[in-house]
Structures are given as C-alpha cells and as structure tokens.
Write a protein that binds this DNA or RNA. Sequence first.
DNA 1: TCCCCGATTAACT
DNA 2: GTTAATCGGGGAG
Length: 196
Amino acid sequence: MGASIEAKPVQVPEDPFEAAKLLLGAELVSLRDAGLSARLVEVEVYLGQDDPASHAFRGPTRRTLPMFGPPGTVYVYRSYGIHLCMNVVTGPVGKASAVLLRAAQPLEGIDLMRTRRKLQDKSLLLKGPGRLAQAFGLSIDDSGKSLGTDLGISLAHKDTVGEAEIAWGPRIGISKAAEEPYRAVWLPGIKWASRP
DNA sequence: TCCCCGATTAACT
DNA sequence: GTTAATCGGGGAG
C-alpha cells in the first residue's frame, strides 16, 4: 500500500525549505526491491554555497559535484568513512542546496530492511541518515543519479503536511552554523525521528 | 605529504 | 558517559 496508485511523484521544488516541507510525510519507494517503502519524518536543509556547514560551501569537488545539478538529483556521501547518507538536491541550479534525509517510518519491506541493517527494533530501523541509506541499499555510486528510474528509488506523496505538524530545530552533528533551525521533524512521526 | 576533522553509529565502561 | 571504525577534504608545512 505504501506506493499507492494515487500517490503522485514528487516534483522537487527549487526552494530547499519548500522541498523539506514537501518531503516530510512523503513516501520513499524502492523500485529495485519491490515493496520496500518508508514515510519520511525528519529532514535537514543545507544551503549549498551560502552555508558554512554544507559540503558544497567551498565549491564543487568530485564528491560534491552532484549538488550543483538540478533539483531531484541525489547526493550520496560517505560519513566518517563508514556510513552513507542521502540528500535530495534542490535549487536554484548551481547553488548546491540540498535536503538530507535523516529518518523515516518503515512501511513495507521491513524484513529486507532488518536483514540489511542487522537490527530487529523497528523504531530504530530508519532512525538516522546512515541507517536510512543502508536500509534502502544505497551505494556511493548512486551519487549523481536522479530520483526515479535512474536511481531506482522514487518519492511520492498524497497529502501535504501542515505547518502546525512540523517542528523546526537545530541541525545535528555539525559545528558550523549549528544554531540555525534547518532541521524539520514531522510531529506525528516523532517516534521515528530525533527530537527537534 | 602529513595531519586533523567531520551532515554517524554501535559497542564499550 | 566515552571511543573506535575509516575515508575524503582542506589547511599547514
């Protein structure tokens, strides 16, 4: 049911904050692993070249080049040499803004997620960007692909989450511009997200 | 070239 | 509470 027929593919907005609001409550659906899906409950905005905390702050490198592409491009990076984290690039093109996918509520394909994550606890399965990326089977080579058939993962949503259902708080795990309230948590999904 | 640090997680004490 | 795992970017030398 996660990837319902009525669900529409997400057109990623140019504005990263609009994109963050659109992504909250949207379903991440795997096209590689039939029936693997999750509802996004926590995302984080990075303002590209205007943002000291962004990997793109000092301009493009081989790693960060995908962030300078069009909205809907995916940027995957290796964190602490171990984990992978997934971002959805927003706009405008060349500014390298992106939204980090931080947490989601498992919907379908939970057994496969548990196998990949080697973890049983459903409430922790997709809680954290590294866990989310691993459960969806991402690899570093996925960086630069586009959402949809190119990546093999798509985003779909039925209803827009209201402003009153979103809590904005400080970003996590960074030291530069750490106070900015760029992390968005969907309140009904608080169990699957970090506290704002 | 070397060294330090990070958009993290899990396994410790 | 602390710490190890491990890789790329960036600044110092």
